[in-house]
Amino acid sequence: MGLITGLITFVVGVLVGGIGIYVGAELVGGGSSYEKAVTAAIVGSLVWALVGTFFGWIPLLGPALTFVAYLGVLNVMYDGGWVEAAAIAVVAWLTLVVVFTLLGPLGVGVFSGVGVPGV
C-alpha cells in the first residue's frame, strides 16, 4: 500500500470511527459534535497504539490497560464519568458493526473504524 493510499485509508477510517463515537455520545450523553467525535477517534487511536505498544505484550494485563487508557480518553473528552465512557465505547462499536454488516453485502469497500477498538 502506497503512502497516499494509506493516508486515505486512515482519514476515511477516522471519519467512520467518528460516526460511531458520535452516535454513542449522542445516545449516552445526550449531546456532542461530530468534530469532537473525530478528535476523540484520533486521540483514542493514538493512545491505544502507544499504550498497546508498551504494555500490550503483558498477558491479560496489557490489553486491559490498553482498553482502560482508551476509556480514559472518552472519559476526559465527554462528561459523565467512566460508566458513560464505557457505554459510549460499546454503542460506537455496535454502531460500526451494524454499518459494516449492512454495507458489506452491497459491495461497498468498507474501511476500518479508526478510534473504535475491535472494528
Rank of each mutant, 00 (worst) to 15 (best):
A64L: 13
Y78R: 08
L27M: 14
L103A: 14
G29A: 09
V91N: 11
G29N: 13
M77R: 02
W82P: 02
S32Q: 01
I88M: 06
W57T: 07
A89G: 05
L71M: 08
L50G: 15
P59V: 05
G44H: 07
I88S: 10
N75Y: 15
W48Q: 11
G113P: 05
A49K: 00
A92K: 03
P63T: 04
F54T: 12
L106D: 05
G30P: 11
T95Y: 13
F111P: 13
Y34F: 04
V91F: 04
F100A: 12
G18H: 09
I8L: 07
T66A: 11
V99H: 04
G109W: 14
L103Q: 09
V76K: 03
L106S: 07
S33D: 02
A49S: 10
I21F: 13
V14K: 06
V97W: 10
V90A: 10
V114W: 02
K36T: 15
G118I: 14
V47L: 05
V12Q: 08
G62R: 00
P59E: 07
V51S: 11
E35Q: 11
A85Q: 01
W48V: 08
F55Y: 06
S112T: 14
G81E: 02
V99T: 10
G31N: 02
V90E: 09
F10Y: 11
V28Y: 08
Y70K: 04
I4R: 11
S32I: 01
T39Q: 11
G31D: 00
G56N: 12
L102G: 14
P63R: 06
V51E: 13
M77H: 02
P59W: 03
G104E: 15
V116H: 00
V90L: 10
F55C: 05
V51A: 15
V90S: 08
G13H: 00
G118H: 05
A49R: 00
T66S: 13
L103S: 15
L74Q: 10
I8C: 02
A69G: 07
A69I: 06
V114D: 13
A41T: 03
V51T: 02
G2T: 00
L27A: 12
K36V: 14
V12W: 02
V119C: 10
V90T: 06
V47R: 04
V38W: 08
I88H: 01
L60Y: 14
G6Q: 10
V68K: 01
F111H: 11
P117C: 01
G80R: 04
V68G: 04
L94M: 15
T95P: 14
G113I: 10
T53N: 01
G118N: 00
V38Y: 06
S45H: 08
I19D: 11
G52Q: 01
L50C: 05
A92V: 03
S33E: 03
L96E: 15
V108C: 12
I58K: 06
I4E: 12
G44C: 07
E35W: 03
V83N: 10
L96K: 14
L50T: 08
E26P: 07
E35Y: 09
V38L: 12
G56Q: 09
V51Y: 12
T95D: 11
G104M: 15
W57S: 15
A69H: 04
G30S: 07
G62C: 02
L3V: 09
V47D: 05
V68F: 13
V51I: 15
L65R: 06
V76T: 07
